[in-house]
C-alpha cells in the first residue's frame, strides 16, 4: 500500500513522458513535489534539488565538486555522501546502491536508489516517487542508460521527511492593479 493515494493525473503524465512505465510494474509512492529531484532523492535528501548551479544559483551542489555536468562530476557529488563505485546493481547485504543514468552524451539525467527489498526507488523529475524494478526504466529516452552503480554501507540515514508540497491553488492571489479613482 503506497503511503499516498495515487494521483491519476500525475501517473498519466508520468506514463506520457516516460513510455516505459506503460508496460512496467511500479508503485507510486508520493505526490508530486518540485522541492527535490531524482539525484537528491537517490542521496536521501528530499529537501533540495541536487543540480550544478546555473544562471540563477538556487540549487544544492556539494562544495568542491566541479559544476560541469558530467558523469564524473555526479559521481564526485555522490561520493560526498559516502558512495563509491561498484560493479553491479545486485542486492548485497550491508550496502545501499544507487544507479546513475546518462543520456547519449554521457550526461546524467536520472538516478535511482536501491531499496532493501532489491527493487529501486526513483523520483521522476518534479513529479512523483515510484518503486520499480531496475529494468522498468532503463533505456527509456527520458531516463537514459546506465552510467554507473555506486554503493555505500547500509543502512543509510533515514530519509528526510518530504518538504512541503509546492503546489498552490491557482486562485491563491492575483496581481492587483491600482485603478484610477473616480473624480
Amino acid at each position: 500500500m503506497p503511503p499516498h493515494p495515487p494521483d491519476p493525473d500525475a501517473i498519466a503524465a508520468a506514463e506520457r513522458f516516460i513510455p516505459a512505465l506503460q508496460e512496467a510494474e511500479y508503485e507510486p509512492q508520493s505526490p508530486r513535489n518540485k522541492g527535490y529531484n531524482c539525484f537528491a532523492w537517490a542521496a536521501r535528501d528530499s529537501a533540495r534539488c541536487w543540480d550544478p548551479p546555473g544562471l540563477a544559483d538556487w540549487t544544492y551542489w556539494p562544495d568542491g565538486v566541479p559544476t560541469w555536468e558530467s558523469l564524473e562530476n555526479y559521481r564526485r557529488a555522490f561520493a560526498t555522501v559516502g558512495f563509491e563505485d561498484c560493479d553491479t546493481g545486485d542486492l548485497e547485504k550491508g550496502f545501499e546502491k544507487v544507479a546513475i543514468f546518462v543520456d547519449a552524451e554521457n550526461v546524467p539525467i536520472h538516478a535511482a536508489r536501491q531499496l532493501p527489498n532489491g527493487r529501486w526507488t526513483s523520483k521522476l523529475g518534479k513529479g512523483i516517487d515510484i518503486e520499480h524494478d531496475f529494468e522498468a526504466l532503463e533505456g527509456d529516452p527520458a531516463i537514459g542508460n546506465l552510467g554507473c552503480f555506486m554503493q555505500r554501507p547500509s543502512p543509510g540515514p533515514p530519509p528526510d521527511p518530504p518538504g512541503p508540497l509546492l503546489v498552490l491553488p491557482r486562485d491563491a492571489g492575483r496581481l492587483t492593479i491600482p485603478r484610477e479613482k473616480d473624480s
Binding site: 503524465a13 508520468a14 513522458f17 516516460i18 508530486r32 529531484n37 531524482c38 539525484f39 534539488c49 543540480d51 550544478p52 546555473g54 544562471l55 540549487t59 555536468e69 550526461v107 546524467p108 539525467i109 536520472h110 538516478a111 523520483k123 521522476l124 523529475g125 518534479k126 513529479g127 527520458a142
Partner: peptide, 14 residues
C-alpha cells in the same frame, strides 16, 4: 511546466 515536469536537470529544463 507540462513538458519539463519529468526533467531532473535544471539546465535541460530551461
Amino acid at each position: 511546466e507540462a513538458e519539463t515536469e519529468f526533467m531532473s536537470r535544471q539546465s535541460q529544463a530551461v
